[in-house]
């Protein structure tokens, strides 16, 4: 199904493991936004995780086993875009599955899925007209955190800002450290908790300096890190996913 502009209006949604456990709100909010836009969406059954935690730890074998389950669920013969509300997981499927499944029977399927996955904000940025028509409104000062994999692997920087710009009342404050890593780094956050927390603090100092109300990102991993530290420190700034902010603005 496509609209007049040839943009697909039926999509699938890969919640990712974080979306299945900690970031359920993000997935729900993503669905609400899509529904408001009149984009039909479904969650393929049987997805698990993209395999990134093991892949980035150097354990290709379990990474492949887990990613294979998700690959089977996503490679369903359709060519609908698969939206992922996580820059990091999108990057894993889009760029690293090729390497992970190289020389295996799943290699072709991995390429098919890699071509279909879309990072959520980059997809929504193609629907800014439709978004504006819904008159999203929220009077907040927003800072945006560019997540590393989305910025430096997928090279997506403008799309989430374009989406934020559709919300009336949002004032986007560019943070000096918007491109600096938050210290999550997947298993890094558990291997080196003190360094990881120090890295989060360096970002959080900047947020306070910029006097923003909400920190927005497109990666549940970074948000888990930053919101977790901000909650512990009782920082008076919220950290939310772009989908959540959009949802609030549409409410």
């Amino acid at each position: 199904m496509t609209d007049d502009a040839g943009v697909s209006t039926a999509v699938q949604l890969f919640p990712t493991c974080l979306g299945d456990v900690l970031a359920r709100q993000t997935v729900d909010d993503t669905e609400r936004v899509l529904t408001a836009l009149g984009i039909s969406h479904s969650r393929p059954s049987g997805t698990t995780c993209c395999g990134q935690p093991a892949f980035n730890s150097g354990h290709d074998h379990p990474a492949r086993a887990v990613a294979k389950a998700t690959l089977r669920a996503l490679d369903d013969g359709s060519d609908e875009p698969i939206l992922v509300p996580s820059g990091s997981c999108t990057s894993m499927v889009r760029l690293h599955w090729r390497e992970l499944f190289h020389g295996t029977p799943e290699a072709e399927g991995a390429l098919r899925v890699a071509r279909r996955v879309r990072e959520l904000s980059s997809y929504l940025a193609e629907h800014t007209e439709a978004l504006r028509a819904l008159k999203p409104t929220l009077a907040v000062r927003v800072g945006y955190h560019d997540s590393c994999h989305m910025l430096r692997e997928l090279r997506i920087k403008e799309a989430p800002r374009q989406v934020l710009a559709t919300i009336a009342g949002v004032e986007l404050i560019e943070l000096a450290s918007s491109e600096r890593c938050c210290g999550f780094g997947g298993t890094f956050s558990g291997r080196y908790p003190e360094v990881s927390v120090a890295m989060a603090d360096a970002k959080i100092d900047d947020l306070e300096f910029a006097k923003i109300d909400v920190l927005v990102s497109s990666d549940p991993g970074c948000l888990m890190q930053l919101a977790g530290r901000m909650s512990r420190q009782e920082t008076p700034v919220r950290a939310v996913h772009l989908a959540t902010l959009l949802c609030e603005a549409l409410a």
Binding site: P62, A65, V66, A69
Partner: peptide, 27 residues
């Protein structure tokens, strides 16, 4: 990866990822 291949990864980490792989590869 080389660290994994050369068996320099702590046993606990090996086991954790092996278990993770077994469980999360089955929907």
């Amino acid at each position: 990866r080389r660290r994994d291949e050369e068996g320099c990864v702590p046993r606990s980490e090996q086991l954790a990822f092996a278990l993770w792989g077994q469980v999360w590869s089955r929907p």
